[in-house]
């Protein structure tokens, strides 16, 4: 049972308002505000340690901000009780930066886990969908293997399969192609674009592969030292004269 949408006309699917987070006395996110319209894919860029993964976890309700609020599908994530937050999370699929595969389960069990926990899907269909997902990411026949037997790139792809198998309307990808070869990265990005086109998913994609996310994202944001340096459409980022934005977008450094 998922939470019913509370979106008003014209409201963005995700609204981040003044999110600030402190950690050990340092400000790791500083008043971040951005909107993500329904059906769009936001490419979240920034140097390492800028706070991108933390922001994604805050949007997913996994970390509480010290200031500000996040509205997902019209619901204030910070004010939802545990039951309603769980219902909201039925709508969210998430690929974690360091895979977060369950060590005690094999690949097939990891991918099938969301479907089995939610129930209502026959076991034969679960098995078929697991095989389909694995084939899609170029890993057929590894369902019986355990995460400890896989390379980093393979784990990333399995993590991707687990996030997308329930076909949630909201998808958060934390560096989904890190550690992958260019061919597999390209397959993943094509798959992301297809899901967005076919299913109308709203997504946030953190990636350091800027050329990879350019074709699949329609909005872009750049974080630096916890501050939002840029947030806008493709046309706006291409027109931006901010030096850091240009460095990231065009791929050059000051050196």
């Amino acid at each position: 049972m998922t939470l019913l949408s509370a979106l008003g006309p014209g409201d963005p699917m995700i609204r981040v308002e003044g999110i600030t987070k402190y950690y050990l006395g340092a400000t790791v996110l500083d008043g971040v505000t951005l909107d993500i319209p329904s059906g769009s894919n936001l490419g979240l860029m920034g140097p390492g340690g800028a706070g991108k993964s933390l922001l994604l976890k805050i949007i997913a309700g996994l970390v509480e901000p010290d200031q500000g609020r996040v509205l997902v599908d019209g619901h204030d994530v910070g004010t939802l009780d545990a039951h309603k937050l769980a219902q909201l999370r039925f709508n969210i699929g998430m690929v974690f930066q360091n895979y977060a595969l369950f060590d005690s389960m094999n690949v097939g069990e990891n991918i099938a886990f969301p479907l089995r926990q939610r129930g209502g899907v026959p076991e034969e269909e679960i098995q078929a969908r697991v095989r389909e997902q694995l084939a899609l990411v170029g890993l057929p026949g590894i369902a019986h293997q355990y995460p400890r037997e896989l390379s980093g790139g393979m784990k990333k792809r399995v993590s991707f399969c687990r996030a997308v198998i329930p076909a949630p309307p909201l998808l958060f990808y934390d560096d989904p192609t890190a550690g992958l070869d260019p061919v597999t990265s390209s397959k993943i990005f094509i798959h992301l674009r297809r899901m967005q086109q076919d299913g109308g998913t709203t997504a946030i994609t953190i990636s350091h592969d800027i050329d990879g996310i350019k074709p699949i994202c329609d909005r872009f944001a750049l974080l630096d030292h916890g501050r939002l340096v840029f947030h806008g459409t493709r046309d706006e980022i291409e027109a931006s004269d901010d030096r850091l934005v240009r460095q990231f977008w065009d791929g050059f450094s000051d050196d």
Binding site: A60, Q97, F113
Partner: peptide, 18 residues
């Protein structure tokens, strides 16, 4: 503890599992 530091606990929560 290992599940905590490797985000497996967060992954459970993200999958709406307490």
């Amino acid at each position: 503890g290992t599940m905590m530091v490797t985000d497996q606990i967060d992954a459970l929560r993200a999958l709406a599992i307490d």
